[in-house]
Design a protein around this nucleic acid. Structure first.
Length: 189
DNA sequence: GGATGGATTGACT
DNA sequence: GTCAATCCATCCT
């Protein structure tokens, strides 16, 4: 079990997003396998960083390997991991592995496939909020471990955006039933 | 100063 | 399938 060092994130978000599939993310001992991510970068019209730094997205322009946590639709939290400046990877789904009891209590559901399937659900299950914005992923309460076995990564179009729709920067663990939505039938985009 | 819409989710028809 | 919840950046007047 190897903790990913912060410089590991100092490269393109798409590259990090693909390599994060199969890694393990824990917050205070609660978490699991990363099975779904999306990449966003400075040149991407769908990205919060597209129009430059603001108070909300300041962490996206901070050091790599730190969290960028923002509020979505006024009520949910979404967690990203910062890569090269102005780019980040959105953590969209985990396969629950540790702290299932705490996840169930926070999420008010017992279905293991609904505990961490979606960016808002991941943050609720792991109790991630604005307090974690800007904090480094190599220190408590975070633990982020490298893959301990090889994985097959699939890619497709990102979810819930209106611009940059064609960019295939959503990454999934092949065959996982813990993703927020399956890839469309047929050839991946 | 006000209106609009979003990297979402859960409840409901 | 539709809709409301509700924060904040952006765009308009």
């Amino acid at each position: 079990m190897t903790q990913l060092p912060l410089p590991w994130f100092a490269r393109s978000a798409a590259s990090v997003a693909s390599d994060l599939i199969g890694c393990r993310l824990l917050v205070d001992g609660v978490g699991g396998l990363v099975v779904e991510t999306e990449a966003y970068d400075r040149s991407d019209p769908a990205s919060h960083s597209f129009a430059g730094p603001t108070s909300r997205n300041a962490s996206m322009f901070g050091p790599p390997g730190h969290a960028y946590v923002y509020r979505s639709y006024g009520l949910h939290w979404c967690m990203n991991i910062v890569c090269e400046p102005g780019s980040a990877v959105l953590v969209r789904a985990l396969e629950p592995m540790a702290g299932l009891d705490r996840m169930r209590a926070r999420r008010l559901t017992t279905d293991p496939h609904r505990l961490c399937a979606g960016p808002g659900r991941v943050c609720q299950a792991l109790a991630i909020s604005g307090e974690h914005d800007g904090r480094p992923l190599d220190r408590a309460p975070f633990v982020l471990l490298a893959r301990d076995q090889p994985v097959t990564v699939m890619s497709g179009s990102r979810i819930g955006i209106t611009r940059g729709v064609q960019t295939p920067w959503r990454f999934l663990l092949a065959g996982s039933r813990f993703v927020s939505r399956p890839l469309p039938r047929g050839r991946p985009s």
